[in-house]
């Protein structure tokens, strides 16, 4: 990202502040929803869904992934694949 013009960086700063407010709002939502009684599986799904949105916002904008080079994206796709496998291993055990 280095070597960007002043105007571009200033635009980025506005974006960072918007992302900040979005993250705060989603934090309030996720805490509020946890007080609503619902089936545990639905609760897990909703909480994970909101966490994924927040994580995507952080990765895309604060970590500049939305404008990052292909090789970094490729490494992360590979990481997601192995991570998913790691998370799935407990359920593989049961079958």
């Amino acid at each position: 990202m280095s070597g960007h013009s002043e105007v571009e960086v200033k635009k980025q700063v506005t974006l960072y502040l918007r992302v900040f407010f979005a993250l705060m709002a989603l934090t309030v939502v996720t805490v509020a929803i946890s007080y609503v009684h619902m089936p545990i599986l639905l609760g897990v799904a909703v909480a994970l869904f909101i966490a994924c949105i927040k994580a995507s916002l952080v990765a895309a904008f604060f970590m500049h992934l939305s404008t990052e080079k292909k090789i970094i994206i490729f490494i992360l796709i590979l990481t997601v694949f192995f991570f998913a496998f790691l998370l799935a291993t407990p359920s593989l055990h049961h079958t």
Binding site: M1, T30, S34, I40, I50, V58, F62
Partner: peptide
Amino acid sequence: VEAAGLYWHFVDLVWIFLFPALYLL
């Protein structure tokens, strides 16, 4: 500073998942 930032955002990212997983569910 950018590299340190990437690490720091990752630490934030982990907490974003930790918080609902341990505290809310």
